[in-house]
Write a protein that binds this DNA or RNA. Structure first.
Lengths: 218, 218
DNA sequence: CTCGGCGCTGTGAGGGCGCTGAGGACGCCG
DNA sequence: CGGCGTCCTCAGCGCCCTCACAGCGCCGAG
């Protein structure tokens, strides 16, 4: 899952980046309104965390422009303001959720998960495919009720695949969303990690579609 | 827009109903957990506003059961609790948003709108001709509900043909769009791959129009 | 009926694609 | 500082796909 954090306070931005990366997200940071807007336009993000008070362009304006350009990226807004009208304004600009500073990191994570869940055709809190289960809140994976220990990267890969079971997902897309690079990194990394997952989850859970990508067997 | 409000405090329920009706919503009210669950199951609502503290069944439990039954109705939870873990728990149960009492009516409205704005997930377009089906998202082809395994080139060729069923398509055009070269490559490749497809899909699905090209039988 | 050309298919070579085991770089912790 | 776990690179290998080729069948024209 690839996130964009737009926040000008360097310390908060760094803390968010580190915390979210530890959860297995791929995180890019922008420090100004225009930079954030550009990055969001570029696409490829699964969600955006957006401060309201930004140099150059306010968070409100960033969302408004994005929506005007038909970008429907899920947006979670952060603001020091806590007047009720500010919050309502943010949501009506096109943001999908709103948090006021100071906020709890746990709540941020929960709302982020809810946001990522939204918009998918099916939105279970626990992803289940066959006897595989993945609980995003607990970051736990079980296979036939037996827990499977996964590394951060393995987990992120499985998470991405389980959100679209049965669909073929290309290595490029996986590199984009699970790894941090698309052009630099050789697609072989994906093959290696698919191999790891197959070893831990069973050989036939992940189908190779030669020339196209991988598919999680339903 | 049809809303379901599940709230046991009669005065709050009535106020919400009146206020939301004034906004143009159609509002039904349920006063207990089981009654709310039944109403939500019945379907037909665009969103649900759900109190946590309910007689009979808690709001958490109502959401959890709805999600377990594959109902993906957007849910906005209301709660007097404001501990951060309560909020996180509510979201992880499957709620889409969370408000703590006392809440501002303006904020409630804004969050409700944000929830309803969530675009309908685009259904994957499935190409169908006769009993042939091709699902681009899943990269899957079925013939009379039986899956057909195709190689990358075969799939690309069928994909192109199925987007123009009944039309005659020349080998040159196929070379142009399915292969990379049109002048270098001998048109025989197309004949070869049409042969492969006929073997896998049935002899009469692909008609030869001598001197002109091929046509997918409708 | 004859003949030419278009299309079909079996065969086989080549090469691209994906899988895997080995091992190095890095960070973390005792 | 050494051990451990994770991440990733690399090279080798095996398989399947792709496509060229050639022979033959079939269709249509004269």
């Amino acid at each position: 899952m690839r996130l964009l954090v737009v926040e000008d306070e360097a310390r908060l931005a760094a803390a968010l980046q580190r915390g979210l990366q530890a959860e297995g997200f791929v995180v890019d940071v922008a420090a100004t309104g225009p930079a954030g807007l550009d990055a969001a336009r570029h696409g490829g993000y699964d969600a955006m965390i957006l401060d309201v008070m930004l140099p150059g362009l306010s968070g409100y304006e960033v969302v408004r422009r994005l929506r005007a350009e038909q970008h429907w990226l899920p947006v979670l807004m952060l603001s020091a303001k806590d007047g009720e009208y500010d919050q309502a304004d943010g949501l009506d600009c096109g943001a999908d959720d709103y948090l006021t500073k100071p906020f709890s990191y746990v709540v941020l994570l929960a709302r982020l998960r809810a946001l990522l869940r939204r918009g998918a055709p099916e939105r279970p809190t626990v992803l289940a495919v066959g006897d595989l289960r993945l609980d995003p809140a607990r970051r736990r994976v079980t296979r036939a009720d037996a827990e499977v220990a996964l590394t951060a990267r393995e987990y992120a890969l499985l998470d991405y695949l389980m959100r679209r079971p049965g669909q073929v997902i290309s290595k490029i897309e996986l590199l984009d969303h699970v790894w941090d690079a698309s052009l630099e990194t050789a697609p072989n990394v994906v093959e290696v990690y698919v191999g790891y997952l197959r070893r831990k989850l069973g050989r036939d859970r992940l189908e190779t579609v030669r020339g196209a990508g991988y598919r999680l067997a339903t």
